[in-house]
């Protein structure tokens, strides 16, 4: 079981990738599938690694990320 969970709103995400630089574990990457507005949203590669720090959500200009932790 992962200790934390990152929920990405794929439709709100514009793929700016600022969260990928903010993540201390480097587990956020831009996905290869575009959303309905033509952006490539971000995705989590390895949720087991997530510490639930919430940095990704903090820096997200589109407020497209929610973070939960045990």
């Amino acid at each position: 079981m992962p200790r934390a969970r990152v929920v990405i709103n794929r439709e709100f995400c514009k793929g700016c990738a600022l969260c990928t630089y903010a993540c201390p574990r480097g587990i956020l990457v831009i996905s290869r599938d575009f959303n309905s507005r033509g952006y490539y949203p971000v995705m989590v590669t390895d949720e087991e690694q997530c510490a639930g720090c919430g940095f990704c959500a903090q820096v997200c200009p589109d407020v497209a990320i929610a973070v939960y932790r045990e």
Binding site: A4, R5, E11, F12, K14, G15, C16, L18, R37, Y39, G52, C53, G54, A57, Q58, V59, C60, P61, D62, V63, A64, I65, A66, V67, Y68, R69, E70
Partner: peptide
């Protein structure tokens, strides 16, 4: 699970019209 971060309710549930990487949405 505890909430670390969720979108505030006072921010309406719709995507921003700003360019990718613009900080208007964050502000």
């Amino acid at each position: 699970m505890k909430v670390v971060f969720e979108r505030p309710k006072t921010l309406l549930e719709k995507p921003f019209t700003y360019c990718p990487g613009c900080h208007h949405g964050l502000a």
